[in-house]
Amino acid sequence: MKLKIILTMIGLLQTTALLADLKIIINDAEGDSISTISSNYKFARIDNRNEAAYLIIDLKSNQFTSVDPVRKVSLVLNDPQTISINKKSGISINLQNIGKGPLISGFDTQKYSLSANGQSCQTIFGSQEVMKLKGINEIFTTLSSLSQQTSHMMGGSTK
């Protein structure tokens, strides 16, 4: 669940090209804010509710660093120098557009269904309107790289 939320949040970082900072608040099912993403377009920071630790992302080098103010430690989570392995697990992934979605936070959305080996995994309401804004590709390159490294580190699929 936490990983899903982080992936969602990172995907939302590319919302605008304005010089002012960007701040996105994500809610959970109860309507409570669970995470805040902030970005000045050079760095991004992700804070999660009830956690002192936060994540700093260098958007130029694609480096992710976890910062724990309680223990006063920082931990670099990925190696930006590592060439992406791009090794797939072999599972069959299907992403299907199933029509128009509602207006969410003022943005038009489309509804998508994500499945793996025929098993329904999740429904995504995505906004191309948000994606058209400047800086999106850098963020997705970073996201994709981290996801692939995470996938490789975690050893791939088990079933």
Partner: peptide
């Protein structure tokens, strides 16, 4: 695993 591998499909779906 699918969510990790399909991270680049956000370019198709748009921002989640």
């Amino acid at each position: 695993q699918a969510e990790l591998e399909s991270s680049d499909t956000y370019q198709k779906t748009g921002a989640p």
